[in-house]
Simulated assay, not measured.
Amino acid sequence: MDSFPAASVERTVEWVDTDASGHQHNSAILRWVEAAEAELFRKLELPDYFPSAPRVQQVINYKAKLWFGQRVTASVRVQALGRTSLTLEFEVRGHPLETPGGGTPDGGTSDGGNVAAFGTVTTVHVPYGTTTAEPWPDHVVRAVQGFKDARDGI
């Protein structure tokens, strides 16, 4: 698994990312993951991935709260490349919250560095003008597998 390509982005939890409870809204996690996904496909030089890769499954497991002003790192890694599908695994980690006394708005303690959310996102290749999944183009397979093979020393 470690030999597949990966990417990370850092973000700050903005006010718009929070809900009425003051911590991250559930949708913020996926936006940060999508930013890391975009970074991954820029790194792989595959700008044509997004217009033809709709999501067919998203699984998000929430473990900790993230607060306004807190820095986070969202990381993605290709978990599996199938004939027509691609599964990314991800995690979002919070950095230590810088508040007076190190506490959180709900009276808890900042557990910066711990995984706040993790899961998977699965996409399929649906070329422009079509409505069903088709095999990934050779250049996508080469980019993902070539990165893997280079890391494996093959």
Rank of each mutant, 00 (worst) to 15 (best):
D19V: 11
S21P: 00
S21M: 13
G22R: 06
H25G: 11
N26D: 11
N26P: 00
N26Q: 11
A28C: 05
I29W: 08
R31N: 07
E34V: 01
E34W: 04
E34D: 15
A35Q: 09
A36Q: 03
A38Y: 05
L40M: 10
L44D: 08
E45L: 10
Y49C: 02
A53N: 07
A53E: 02
A53R: 04
P54D: 13
R55E: 15
R55S: 12
R55P: 01
Q57G: 12
Q58I: 15
Q58Y: 00
Q58T: 15
V59C: 07
I60E: 05
N61H: 14
Y62G: 04
K63N: 09
K63F: 12
A64T: 02
L66S: 09
F68Q: 14
F68P: 00
Q70P: 00
R71M: 12
R71T: 13
V72H: 01
V72A: 06
V72L: 03
A74G: 03
S75T: 15
S75K: 12
V76D: 04
R77D: 09
R77W: 06
V78N: 04
Q79R: 15
L81F: 05
L81E: 02
R83C: 03
R83K: 13
R83V: 11
T84C: 11
S85I: 02
L88Y: 05
F90R: 03
E91M: 09
E91Y: 04
R93M: 01
R93I: 01
H95M: 12
H95L: 10
P96L: 05
L97P: 00
L97E: 04
E98H: 07
T99F: 00
G101W: 08
G102F: 07
G102D: 10
G103P: 01
G103K: 14
T104M: 08
G108E: 13
T109R: 14
T109E: 13
S110T: 09
G112A: 05
G113I: 06
F118N: 14
V121Y: 01
V124W: 07
H125D: 07
H125C: 15
V126G: 10
P127M: 06
P127D: 08
P127F: 06
Y128M: 15
G129Y: 06
G129K: 09
T130C: 03
T132F: 08
E134S: 14
E134F: 01
P135T: 10
W136A: 09
P137K: 07
H139T: 11
V140H: 15
A143N: 10
V144K: 10
G146W: 05
G146S: 09
D149P: 00
A150S: 13
R151N: 14
